[in-house]
Amino acid sequence: MDFELIAESLPRLAEGIDETLLLAGSSLVIGFVLAVPIALLNLSNNGTVRTLSSGYVYIFRSTPLLVQIFLIYYGSGQFRAELQAVGLWFLFRESWFCAILALTLNTAAYTSQIIRGGLQSVPWGQIEAARSIGMPGFMAFRRLIFPIAIRQALPAYGNEIILMVKSTSLASTITILEITAIAKKIISATYQPVEVFLIAGAIYLSLNFIVTRAIMLVEFWLTPHLRVDRRIPPVVRRTPAPVPAP
C-alpha cells in the first residue's frame, strides 16, 4: 500500500464528487418528473397508451445502460447532417447532454414502475372515501393518493437512487470527468491501480451510505403513524382501599 499516493489522489478524486452528484441528481430529478406521467399512462384504461408506455419501460429496462449511452452519444454522429439541419446538433455534440439524456430515460423507466407500484398499493376504500366527501379528482390525488403512494414507494426509490449513483460511473466512458474517469487518469500516470480504485470505491460507498441514511430519515418523517410508542407508561400507585373491619 502506497499511503503517499492515497493521500495525494484523495483530494483529486474528491473533485469528481461534484460531477457524479450533478449527473445523478439532475437525471434523477428530470427522470422523476417524466416517471409520474409514464406511471399514470401505465395505469390508464386506454389500451394504446398503456402499450406505448409499458413498451418504453420494457425497452429501457431490458437493455444495458452502456448501450443506451453509446447509442445516443456515438449513434447521433451518424445523423449529424440531419441534426444540424434541425438545430439540435449542438446538444448531441456535448457528452454531458448525452450522458444526462441516457441516464434520465433509463431512470424514468425504472422510477415509473416504482411509482406505479406505490399508486396501486393505495387502498380503494381511501379513494372511495375521498369521493364520498366530494373531493375533486386532482385534490384527492394531491392530498391522499400521492402521499400514500410515496410512502410505499420510498424504500424502492432509495434503491434506485443508489443504482443511479453507481450508474454515473458509465459516463466516464464518454469523456466525462467524474470519479471513475479521474481514477483512471491517475492510474494511467502512476500505474498503481489498487490504491486508487480502492479510494474511488470508498468514495462511492460513502456517498451511497449517506443516501441510505437520508432515505431512512425521510421514511421516519413520513410515517409518524407507524411509530411504536416506546415510552414506558408511568406507574400509577393507588393507595390501597382500606380493608373494611369485619
Binding site: 471513475t180 483512471k184 500505474y191 491501480p193 480502492l198 470505491g201 462511492y204 451511497n208
Partner: peptide, 20 residues
C-alpha cells in the same frame, strides 16, 4: 461493498489490480 460501488469499478479493480 459490492452493492455500494459501481460494477465498472469492480471490473477495473479486479482487472488491473489482479494483473498487478
Amino acid at each position: 461493498i459490492l452493492r455500494g460501488i459501481p460494477e465498472l469499478l469492480v471490473i477495473y479493480l479486479i482487472f488491473f489490480g489482479g494483473g498487478q
